[in-house]
Design a protein around this nucleic acid. Structure first.
Lengths: 155, 155
DNA sequence: ACAATGCCCTTGGGATACCATGGGGAAATA
DNA sequence: TATTTCCCCATGGTATCCCAAGGGCATTGT
């Protein structure tokens, strides 16, 4: 299946609309998705977005829990309550909701970031900052792995 | 089947009516439901609402118990005694009962929260508080899982 | 190699439909 | 008869639909 790849920054017009990058749109269109499932991220200031399959992934994850547990309840509360369908208009745009703006800090520009099976929407500055942090963590990770693989004496 | 998704806050007018969010309404209409099954939640200050299928889900749950047990009796007492049908008017509104107000603390605003197969009605402040708690619990849940997967030495 | 052309993508804006809300008044209830 | 419930219509704001234009990129032709 085609992946959501790369990133782009698009402008919000005065009606509060943004164009979804064409490369993302064509993936959605190929899957006959005419709306976006969006979820306010729990640990980042961004929104996860994708097709129905994204929601189904989450529901599958929930499905592995007993419906009577509080874990299940919390997950359902989050996946269904903190998410929304966003209609994609004929020109491939979406209208940003108040909840989305508040959670992400987005005002006049949106950074779209491919994440493989889904993509994210960020306020550009926050995206840049997060990206730098993530890169630093990856460098550290590589370092750790290298130390793990090479025995002490060889280093 | 279409899910109840996202959340919205609507006003109660001086006649005591609230509009059900259009996205929720359209799901009910598609299922030819012209009234709402509502149940005072046991462990939250909210009301669960949905179509006939919601009541049927509960009855099925009861059905798995022995009718002669006190558990069965309690559940039946709860599902049938603490619930009510709410009529939906031609404009998609419902009138709030005294019992509902008392249990939820709702006065002039209602937070509607999608829960997939049903939705909830909250007093907005209580909803905001519960939502923050739930999100915190999920963050902790993710943390637990991450620690479970990564062996101690690698961390 | 450079210029011209055409296509695709993003952005803009007017018109329209939908939705939440308010209120009048009739019908049902007590 | 008084009060509540229900049905109807009105309105302001917002979201959606439709059409148009400007700019960048690649392709084509000279």
């Amino acid at each position: 299946m085609e992946r959501f790849l790369s990133n782009a920054i698009n402008n919000v017009d005065k009606k509060g609309r943004v164009s979804i990058p064409a490369s993302f749109r064509s993936i959605l269109e190929a899957r006959r998705e005419f709306r976006l499932y969006t979820l306010l991220s729990i640990d980042m200031f961004c929104v996860d977005a994708g097709g129905t399959d994204l929601l189904e992934t989450y529901e599958k994850r929930m499905g592995e829990l007993d419906p009577l547990t509080s874990d299940y309840d919390d997950l359902s509360f989050y996946y269904h309550g903190d998410s929304a369908w966003m209609k994609i208009d004929g020109d491939g745009r979406i209208g940003l909701s108040e909840a989305l703006r508040e959670h992400t800090g987005i005002t006049d520009k949106v950074a779209f970031v491919g994440r493989g099976t889904f993509f994210q929407m960020w306020q550009p500055e926050r995206f840049a900052a997060y990206r730098n942090e993530a890169r630093a963590r990856i460098r550290a990770m590589k370092q750790r792995l290298a130390e793990q693989i090479l025995p002490q004496e060889v280093r």
